[in-house]
Structure formats: C-alpha cells, structure tokens
Design a protein around this nucleic acid. Structure first.
Lengths: 195, 195
DNA sequence: TTGCCGCCTTAACCTGGGTTAACCTCCGCC
DNA sequence: GGCGGAGGTTAACCCAGGTTAAGGCGGCAA
C-alpha cells in the first residue's frame, strides 16, 4: 500500500482485491502542485482526476459572463477533478487551484476506464463515487433552500473543521454564495452577540 | 413494449436486450395516484421508485424544523422517488405528491437489485441514473450561486415549458427558494417592464 | 526603511426579498 | 344563489446582503 490516502478514499466504496490495488497504483502518477498553481484550468480537457495527498484546493466555476463561484474545497484524501465535465466529456469549465503547496495522485480517466473493463470492482467504485457526489450536491441544494447565509456558515465550519485557517475568507464567502463584505459583517455580528 | 415511457427514460442510458426489458416489465406494477395523493410521504420506507406515465408530481423535503422546500417536479417519462434516501437506506424525508390525477409504473428497489444481479446492463443504468441526478443538482447549485431569483425563474420556465399551467405558483416559488409573495412581485415587475 | 500588495474590516447607502395582512377571483358545494 | 376555501396579488414595513469606497494590518521586496 504505497498510498494510504488512496486506500482511505476508495476502500469504503466496496471490496477491491489486492491485485487491483496494484494495478491502480501502477497507473497513478504523483505530482506536486505549487501554491496558486492549477491542477486544471477552464478550457483544459477534463481527462484526469486525482486524490489529494497533501494540501487544499479550491474548485471554481467560471461562468460565461465572467462570474466566479466556488463549488467546493478539497483536502487530503478527497477526489479532485471536474467531475461534471468528465461525465459529459466536455472541456473543463472549472478551475482547480491549490491554496497551499500540494501533492496529488493523478489518474487519467482513460486509464480508469481500462481498470473498469478489467474488473467489476471498479465499476462499483465509479457508481459509488457518482452517488456520493449526488448526495453532497443534494445536501448543498437543501442548505440554499432552507438556511440563511449565517446558518450556512455555521454548517460549513461544523462540517469542514479541517479547513480552518487554510482557506481565505473571500473563498468561503464565495462558497456560501455571498460577498466577502457580507461574510465579514456576519462574523462581526456573531462576535458582538456572544461577548 | 408495453410502456413507451419506461423505454424513453431508460434506453438512452445504454443498450438493454429485449429479454431484459421483459423481465423489467414483469416486475413493474402500474398504479394510479389521485390528485393531492402521495406516492411517498415522510417516514415511509424509501423502497420503491417509479416512472411517471401521466401527471405531474412535486417532491417536497420536509425538514426537522418544519420547513418545506420543493426539490423538484417530475412529469411524464421522469423518474420518481426519494433517491437520496434510497441510496442511504433511510426512511424518506421527502414527500412526493401528485399535482394532477396521475399514473405511475412502480418498481421495488429490491426487485431492481435482482435485475442488476441478473444482467450488467442494469448496473450501467443505475450508474447513469446516479450521474444524471448529480448533473441536475450541480446545475441547480450553480444557479443558486450565480443567478438572482428573477433569473432563476426565467431559467426554470425555459427548461420546463411543459410545466406551464400545471404547477401552482407557490410551488414554483418554493422551488426557486423564495416566497410566493416575492414571486408575484417579480412577475408584476416583469410585466411592467415589457409593456 | 519605506512602500506596496494581499487580505480583511467597517461604514454608508441601496435594493431585493421576507413578513404580515388585506383583498380579489375563481370554483365547488351547500 | 350564497358561502367558503384555495390560490394569487398588492401594499407597507423591515432587514439581510450587495455595492462602493475608505482604511487597517501584516508581510515582503526594493
């Protein structure tokens, strides 16, 4: 087991025989990503994904009208990639940027497809990945529908305590769907209330 | 082919042999749902799903604090079910209610699992379903992050023209994440602007 | 040291949407 | 025919968050 982070991420998704782990590891390539460098930028082919070994990334969707929205943050052990674009086989509309010096374990989607053809366990993994992505998004939809910005902020920190101090506030704000000014205001409101 | 709606929904997800269609149809049960009656209510086991043959449904998430949010509408040919709860094998937190007299084609998830064990084509279908659900939610997330309520309204009608006149305004408002009052205001604003 | 830059905060002002409540209209039912 | 309820509209008022603009502050480079 050369990459515990990989194991940690994929093992809960179903049993994978030892020999398949080895095949997978042989296809992976370790890569360093400097702070502020991109794993993927808009326009790139969405033909690879990765597991984060070290560091934090932000996934930014760049819209046609120039707006930027933060879709997610990804830290150690999590999957990194423009998943929607991969599924649709279109160029990436997502920018994936390291917020810290980072290391990732890269797979080409093409290689993963080979894995799938070789053993059914990878098909199950792919399905579980799809299902988990769905569950995450549904949760987020629910939050937008029924929580205020302040409640979304609380939820965010409750669920991502490991991001404390590692992501700039402006990005948290963009993730919550508000401006950095509004976030600052909310925080000072909270401060006042609890003193 | 007894159920064209079923075919229409599943065929694009991958090739399915004739014999498997027959097995699937033999497991399905047609069911009528009256207007305002429920296909599923919160607390029910999420152990079945359906394809809509006729009518429109609304999927409402009932939260712990009593709030109601509209997650989606489903019309002819679309899949009906508490998908997130099915995946997690928990009781439904979703209420699925017919807005018109309706007919659906019901499957028990357990039976579908049998199909999956019998032929790999159903595994592919299940995966594509997961992926499509994800894409839909990601789209919606994007809309909340970067569009105003008015823009979300325009998008909604552009993408669901077949729901015109079939869903009450208050439900459209709840789907957009605003109140019916705000929706009414937005509409009169638009009216004024274009006259 | 100075000056600049990146990140955050604060304040002033504006706007969109929430809340409440009154009212309208259609429709079905007695 | 009258009544009541469901669904929609409008108005008044309030507040959260957007926008703009002016600092504050720590770090880094010249």
């Amino acid at each position: 087991m050369r990459f515990p982070k990989l194991y940690e991420q994929l093992a809960p998704l179903g049993p994978i025989p030892e020999s398949e782990w080895e095949r997978a590891e042989s296809l992976a390539r370790e890569q360093a990503v400097e702070r502020k460098a991109h794993f993927l930028r808009p326009g790139d082919a969405a033909d690879r994904f990765a597991v984060v070994l070290q560091g934090v990334f932000r996934l930014v969707r760049v819209s046609a009208r120039g707006g930027e929205t933060v879709k997610a943050f990804r830290a150690e052990g999590e999957l990194l990639g423009a998943y929607a674009e991969m599924l649709q086989r279109v160029a990436s509309m997502t920018s994936i940027e390291a917020l810290e010096p980072a290391r990732v374990l890269v797979f080409r989607t093409q290689d993963f497809q080979t894995l799938e053809e070789g053993h059914a366990c990878w098909v199950r993994v792919a399905r579980r990945v799809a299902e988990r992505h769905f569950l995450l998004k549904e949760k987020r939809e629910q939050e937008f529908l029924e929580l205020s910005a302040e409640e979304r902020l609380d939820t965010f920190w409750a669920e991502h305590p490991h991001l404390r101090g590692r992501v700039p506030q402006r990005d948290v704000a963009a993730y919550l769907g508000i401006t950095e000014v509004a976030l600052s205001r909310i925080m000072s409101r909270k401060r006042k209330r609890t003193e």
